[in-house]
Design a protein around this nucleic acid. Structure first.
Length: 818
RNA sequence: GCUCCUGUGGCGGAAUUGGAAUACGCGCGGCGCUUAGAACGCCGUCCCGCAAGGGUUAGAGGUUCGAGUCCUCUCAGGAGCACCA
């Protein structure tokens, strides 16, 4: 079999006939939008791409054969850091690099034989695309969802840009793994926190892997509690000037039930209170020294659990616990985070591990208020914090309540006295979208001395990314675009005076947050996509991609959809109804593939040696799709042999002069129909490996038949066609069919033929298999008992033991307990 | 530290709801074809035992007539979270 010739031939014909062009509507067929996460044009397609795209294409093809009008688009996530970093490394302009790679990767993608509708290809770095990315930014801005602020941000010193929280992994840059540092810099953010509640709640209705949902839930991090006002007590050093300032400090807690055990407060070093009470804090200078130190630390240093907590008392001021009116001291400590809750906590050392540790170190009072072994009257001496629920003691009128009740009653008490209220906090922080880099969509904002921050009018979009020579990132925290006078200097759209453009570009994740919408109408130059077309396809019915995007792309895309839904551009709230992740392919050594380790498997080489069909099919056959696994260099031979045998057998059938119609083989017919059923169900459930093994079992049987109905053989070619589209098409033509096999419907199985009339009854004695016998389906227990007890083998096993019990499982087994 | 997932032959892996463990493929061994090899075809391939039979799903216990599957503990590997009050 000359697979190279076959692949070339069909690539040409498929393109010519446009069999993969997708219409927005086909009569009698439901639309099905099947999407794979589009690739970065980072260089070459690697085996991981193949593992992502090839089995996904099997699913696409199966859906299409099953009667759906399937949209299966592809494109390139072309803007962004990785592509730009690679370009710089090779000394090539990012634009040239990116488009050169897109060209090469397109050829590689075409070789896979996927049913992509190439007429819908999108490239996020194209002017026609990023015009709409900028338009999206403007909508966010106009609706108060994009804002600029100056605050410490995650700065990657190697990539010379700020990063979103989601892009910092263990204190390192997600891409280059450099240690991220804190840097004060003006930056643009999207108010994703406004959507925290909805992003959390709507996860419930999605057909997504539970793990992914859990990860998003944890990232959003909802916690319910109360915010309480602690009054600041007048101190000896009070003077008239600061009387109005900071009369109280707000804390957030989820453990209101422990408040009688609160023996001090802790505020974060960033807390404004320190400045507000400057004149009253006796050791202000010392405090400021501590604050400066804390601010210098990176998040990673600050959150290092292994390190001892540090803190410093704000001398001269004290707070009052509203529940028992006790005066307590106030500390500043860097284990309290400035950006979460109120940036201040009530410390309950007896019932919180962190407070316990801190209290032991600074010798602060510990007061037990929760007893674990309810209703035990005496609480044990604590050796560590007791953080569980229990019944309350030392808690005034709330004594004797259990934690859950107490939280409820105490919250009411607070609200009645107007010194606190229920509050929900989220860990999620706003999405930092500006990047001080060249290769991205420019943020469409203009700064005018007179008019202030002015969004670029929509009619002036796109703000074109200039083709500058100096695109290298800079140290000073500014985009390289800042050096381009031509780009920067602009007239204010409002007053016409001299103004300056924003020079930061957008995070690549902004581009990929809406691309799935654009595929439905990729050429539209009036809107990002036509509403009718979006309605025809969206939301995405099945989305496939790597699990590494669980809290990045997938969260951002959901956020975009919700915003556009609120702005009435979309009629749905979730972009991806169903989601599946492919696993990761490791090198033969069990290590992650990398150039330095020299364990990279080159898909082009494999295609050259074994053919695209074999590569596709082997990837499907390796194991469960979401599991991935190590690459076994010889495993693909099995698939290659299988395909060769299919080819040879077809030739034999075609050349065989004898009439092949006459065969009657009910056993084989049954197996054929069982296989049609199983293959379809397995593909539907992403169990490609077992689908293929059932095809192999069927073929092994068929091959043994000297005479075979050609119509039955055609069915097996159809079953094969999603896996091996080239070979199937070639054989289909050889079997004298004019239309493409890929436009054929999936074979239907005959339910009557599948049914077994007989089955092998397993005979167990004390749970051990001792014998088996062929009996008719649905045999009754009595009949079965009679039958097996008369068998010599069983008789001898039972001998003279008495039968205690007989367990009968219909159509499976019978177990005699003696 | 916490949470979740995974552990089945020499290897990748099968095994509806608890009901024949090791399907399918790789590899290996033997034979055939061949001057020889490659390719291909056929047969064999969990362990002990001549056999009857017995044992085996990381390890130890438990529930059950019956456990790879459910429960408890231990070990190993992986993923995620990690001062969020």
């Amino acid at each position: 079999m000359n697979f190279k010739k076959i692949e070339k031939k069909w690539q040409r014909i498929w393109k010519q006939k446009g069999i993969y062009k997708t219409k927005d509507k086909v009569r009698g067929k439901n639309n099905f939008y099947h999407l794979v996460m589009f690739p970065y044009p980072s260089g070459n397609l690697h085996i991981g791409h193949w593992y992502n795209f090839a089995p996904a294409d099997v699913f696409s093809r199966f859906k299409r054969m099953s009667g759906f009008n399937v949209l299966s688009p592809i494109g390139f996530d072309a803007f962004g850091l990785p592509a730009e970093n690679a370009a710089i490394k090779h000394g090539i302009h990012p634009k040239d690099w990116t488009y050169k790679n897109i060209k090469a990767m397109t050829v590689q993608l075409e070789s896979m034989g996927n049913m992509y509708d190439w007429s819908r290809k999108i490239i996020t770095a194209d002017l026609e695309y990023y015009k709409w990315t900028q338009w999206m930014f403007l909508q966010f801005y106009k609706n108060g969802l994009a804002y600029k602020k100056n605050a410490p941000a995650n700065w990657c010193p190697k990539c010379h840009t700020v990063l979103a929280n989601e892009q910092v992994v263990n204190g390192q840059c997600e891409r280059c793994e450099a240690q991220v540092v804190k840097r004060e810099i003006e930056q643009w953010l999207f108010k994703i926190t406004d959507y925290a509640g909805k992003l959390l709640k709507d996860l419930d209705g999605l057909d997504w892997p539970e793990k992914t949902k859990t990860m998003q839930k944890n990232w959003i991090g909802k916690s319910e509690g109360v915010e309480i006002k602690f009054k600041i007590q007048n101190s000896s050093r009070q003077n008239k000037f600061d009387a109005d300032l900071a009369e109280s400090v707000n804390v957030f807690t989820t453990r209101l039930d422990t408040i009688f055990g609160c023996t001090y407060l802790v505020i974060s070093p960033e807390n404004q209170m320190i400045e507000n009470l400057k004149l009253r804090i006796e050791n202000y200078d010392e405090i400021i020294k501590y604050v400066k130190q804390a601010k210098k630390k990176s998040d990673l240093q600050r959150t290092d659990l292994a390190k001892e907590k540090t803190g410093i008392e704000l001398k001269g001021i004290r707070a009052v616990n509203p529940f028992n009116n006790e005066e307590i001291s106030i500390y500043a400590a860097d284990y309290v985070l400035g950006h979460y809750g109120t940036g201040a906590v009530m410390a309950v050392p007896a019932h919180d591990e962190r407070d316990w540790e801190f209290a032991k170190k600074y010798n602060l009072p510990v007061k037990i208020t929760i007893c674990p072994n309810y209703p035990a009257p005496v609480c044990p001496v604590l050796e560590e914090a007791y953080t569980g629920n229990g019944h309350l003691i030392n808690s005034g009128e709330f004594n004797g309540l259990i934690s859950q009740e107490a939280r409820e009653k105490m919250a009411k008490w607070l609200e009645e006295k107007k010194i606190g209220s229920r509050k929900i906090n989220y860990k999620l922080r706003d999405w930092l979208v500006s990047r001080q880099r060249y290769w991205g969509a420019p943020i469409p904002i203009i700064y005018c001395d007179k008019c202030g921050v002015i969004p670029v009018p929509e009619k002036n979009l796109p703000v074109k990314l200039p083709n500058v020579k100096n695109y290298l990132p800079t140290e000073e925290g500014k985009s390289p675009l800042a050096h381009s006078e031509k780009f920067v200097n602009v007239k204010c759209p409002k007053c016409g005076a001299k103004a300056k453009r924003e020079t930061d570009t957008m995070d690549t994740f902004v581009c990929s947050s809406w691309y799935y919408l654009r595929y439905t109408d990729p050429k539209n130059n009036k809107k990002f996509a036509d509403a009718k077309k979006m309605k025809a396809w969206l939301p995405v019915d099945m989305y496939i991609g790597g699990a590494e995007h669980s809290v990045l792309h997938l969260l951002y895309a959901r956020f975009f959809t919700k915003v556009l839904n609120d702005l009435k551009y979309l009629n749905f709230k979730e972009p991806f109804s169903a989601l599946r992740h492919q696993g990761i392919i490791l090198g033969p050594d069990g290590q992650k593939m990398s150039k330095s380790k020299g364990n990279i498997v080159d898909p082009d080489e494999l295609v050259k040696n074994f053919g695209a069909d074999a590569v596709r099919m082997h990837l499907c056959f390796m194991g469960p799709y979401d599991q991935g696994g190590l690459w076994n260099p010889t495993g693909i031979l099995g698939i290659k042999r299988f395909l060769d045998r299919i080819f040879a057998f077809t030739q034999k059938l075609i050349n065989d002069q004898r009439p092949t119609i006459s065969d009657k083989n009910p056993k084989l017919e049954k197996l054929l129909h069982q296989t049609i059923k199983k293959t379809g169900e397995d593909i539907e459930n992403f169990r490609f490996n077992t689908a293929i093994s059932s095809l192999m079992i069927l073929f092994n049987e068929m091959e043994k038949q000297p005479l075979l109905k050609i119509e039955n053989w055609k069915l097996i070619i159809k079953l094969l066609s999603p896996f091996a589209p080239y070979l199937a098409e070639e054989l289909w033509q050889q079997l004298k069919n004019k239309k493409s096999i890929h436009l054929e419907p999936w074979p239907k199985y005959n339910p009557k033929l599948i049914k077994e009339e007989e089955f092998e009854l397993i005979i167990q004695i004390n749970g051990k298999v001792r014998d088996k016998v062929l009996v008719s389906q649905n045999i009754a227990q009595k009949e079965a008992e009679k039958l097996i007890l008369s068998r010599e083998k069983i008789k001898s096993f039972i001998a003279n033991q008495s039968i205690k019990k007989i367990i009968f499982v219909p159509n499976k087994l019978i177990n005699i307990v003696v």
